[in-house]
Design a binder for these strands. Structure first.
Lengths: 198, 198
DNA sequence: AAGATAAGTAAATGTTTATTTACTTAAAAA
DNA sequence: TTTTTAAGTAAATAAACATTTACTTATCTT
């Protein structure tokens, strides 16, 4: 038996994310990807059944799961509400601003029917995707600290502004007047937090 | 001279939006589109230089400009802040939930480098995209009613949750437990409004 | 009514696509 | 060391792609 070359596997995923970030998902082809990763097209098909399978695994394993871990680093569901919000917001901001290609694919996750379906199925499978956050929100609802909305609705209120701010961070990237600083992120986190408090 | 057949032109745009909503932007091909619109591929190329040109015009003219108009219907920048927020939120919600294909392309606008670039250029050209809302926000900052953030940051705080709720509306579509009702939208609007008040 | 002209079509262009075939190579097991 | 086996490659396949060519048609102008 011959063992898999893990470096090549990593190169394939890294190059795929880069192409998606630079040219868009609609311009990622398997041949372009193979060439960019310095690999034969066949090599990709050893691990992945087809293009859809590759994209779904790239999205779920390489992006969502990594993002999930980054968000809850040093976070505990027992934290004070404002404290927990700050922690998750800063974690997400740091991760995303340093992983532009991952961020690009996350945005596609809300657009592409394929990725969106994969995302929903994963959510259903695990019961709960970001479960420490689920517990965190539930605890604060039960304690009467924040308003009582379904989990989905709560997340829609608490996190999408951050993703939009990250988009703006990249829009202003390399321009001297960068307005999306960590400080602005913290102020925005306070705004969002204030809104949901009872 | 022979005049353009406006019905065919409309059919092309309508079918394009439908294909994008059903199969994703990455699965829209000019030949598939021509067949779906019952038109020769050449017909598309009479009005549009190439695929990129078509997509950009579809996005800007068919989706963004229509969306902009819908949002500010019966809205006046001189409205009370909470009132104006409610009006724009409800307008956007009604428009998007009744125009799923437009919504699908709006989401791609934040993902695809091509569309994102087109969007930014349009923003720059007009100085200001949703300008009644620009004035509305500026007036409320100056009056000390809401917190003073740059326009971009304000919009990131005030509108992305609504788009996320519309996504969830469609996720729950046709399921009996639809949780995203107009009433929930209004409650969420209040949450967002409360956060930004001084 | 005739001619001019742009809108329209069907079919073809050459290219790129996802995926496969036929072959080679590296290393684990014998 | 030899055999086995999956990992890997380069080149090929057939289908789908964006766009064009060569031709037809509808209607405005005269």
């Amino acid at each position: 038996m011959r063992p898999r070359n893990l470096e090549k596997e990593a190169a394939i995923r890294t190059m795929a994310l880069q192409i998606i970030a630079d040219e868009g998902l609609e311009n990622l082809s398997m041949q372009k990807l193979a060439k960019a990763a310095n690999v034969s097209p066949r090599t990709i098909y050893i691990k992945y059944e087809n293009k859809e399978d590759f994209l779904v695994k790239l999205f779920i394993e390489e992006v969502l799961e990594t993002y999930e871990q980054a968000i809850v680093k040093n976070f505990s569901p027992d934290m004070d509400f404002a404290e927990g919000m700050k922690k998750t917001w800063l974690n997400a901001f740091q991760y995303l601003k340093n992983n532009k290609p991952a961020f690009a694919l996350i945005r596609y996750g809300k657009s592409s029917p394929l990725l969106n379906k994969a995302y929903q199925q994963k959510g259903i499978k695990q019961g709960d995707y970001f479960s420490p956050i689920h517990y965190f929100l539930k605890r604060n609802i039960d304690a009467g600290i924040i308003k009582d909305f379904p989990q989905d609705v709560l997340r829609a209120l608490l996190y999408p502004p951050l993703l939009e701010l990250v988009s703006e961070y990249f829009d202003y990237e390399e321009r001297p007047e960068q307005i999306i600083t960590e400080d602005v992120i913290l102020q925005c986190c306070e705004v969002v937090t204030k809104g949901i408090l009872k």
